[in-house]
């Protein structure tokens, strides 16, 4: 009698393993029959990623350096950040991490692009309807809290090891903030301003593009910033399933206890993160210049 209370009445080992096997088998046969189709579906993405990575590696390094510093300047309009970017990349190159850094840059850029293309429309959709919001929010919660290793498994089962599954894993991990903040930004737009647009006869489309999105832009941009940061954080984990880049040496350093190697590549990731963060943040701040009176 007491046994009932001491031991939770569970499904039983044999049933449980049968259940697991059933699910695994089911998913395996699903990936056997559809895996190829899904791979073909994602192949443009793969080509784009490979092309971009090759472009970054084939371009002479001084040119890349100039372009990167130029982007930092255009984004931040800050000499400090631009000079910091310059020296960070000089150090990265000097310590022979240039190739890995370019590979990481490629996957981060592509992942961020994918997240923006999918995430912003999704966020807009969410802001339009409370019902859609109540469906998507828990999905985002799951995506953010589930240990990232767990969703590597189905992705690998479906697509094997390689760049595309890595990219998908990064995107799943990094997309929630941009969706959330787009939704939030649009919902936070002042009601009276919206009413004004409506009172002048704006169509829903005009309302969205002339009023809601421009006013939500600072929040949307905060989402982009978060997405980039999370994509960077995911790079190390994604290297477990065949994504080249700074994560690979870090992984090797962990399994072989190479302190210096791990530290150097880890710091390179940190440097990338800081540059991305500062540039995108100050760009986001300039977007809301009108709020503080702004420049004329």
């Amino acid at each position: 009698m007491w046994d009932f209370f001491l031991e939770f009445p569970s499904i039983g080992r044999r049933d449980l393993s049968a259940l697991r096997q059933g699910i695994d088998e089911g998913f395996r046969s699903f990936s056997r029959s559809y895996g190829e189709a899904i791979e073909i579906f994602f192949s443009p993405l793969l080509h784009f990623l490979v092309w971009f990575e090759k472009l970054l590696l084939a371009t002479p390094w001084p040119l890349i350096l100039i372009v990167l510093c130029g982007l930092a300047w255009v984004g931040s309009r800050s000499m400090k950040i631009t000079v910091g970017t310059f020296f960070a990349f000089i150090l990265i190159g000097y310590f022979d991490m240039w190739e890995e850094t370019m590979a990481t840059l490629a996957i981060i850029s592509v992942a961020t692009f994918v997240c923006i293309v999918i995430g912003i429309p999704l966020g807009i959709l969410m802001s339009k309807s409370d019902r859609i919001q109540s469906v998507i929010t828990p999905v985002l919660d799951i995506m953010q809290t589930i240990p990232s290793f767990v969703y590597l498994i189905p992705v690998v089962m479906l697509l094997g090891i390689g760049k595309v599954p890595g990219l998908i894993a990064v995107c799943i991990y990094a997309i929630p903030p941009i969706v959330r903040l787009t939704n939030l930004g649009i919902r936070l737009v002042d009601r009276e301003v919206l009413e004004a647009a409506e009172a002048f006869g704006a169509s829903p489309r005009q309302k969205l593009f002339d009023v809601q999105i421009p006013l939500a832009l600072p929040n949307i941009f905060a989402g982009v910033n978060q997405t980039i940061m999370m994509a960077l954080a995911m790079v190390v984990i994604a290297s477990m399933i065949g994504v080249r880049g700074l994560g690979v040496p870090v992984l090797r350093a962990i399994s072989n206890q190479y302190l210096a190697l791990g530290l150097m590549n880890g710091l390179a990731i940190v440097a990338l993160a800081i540059i991305f963060d500062r540039v995108s943040q100050s760009y986001g701040k300039r977007l809301q210049a009108h709020r503080e009176g702004g420049e004329k």
Binding site: E192, V193, E195, A196, A197, V211, L215, H290, R291
Partner: peptide, 12 residues
Amino acid sequence: SMVFQHFGLFPH
């Protein structure tokens, strides 16, 4: 057309 209490201007 309409004029609003808190102006309802487009800040951007």
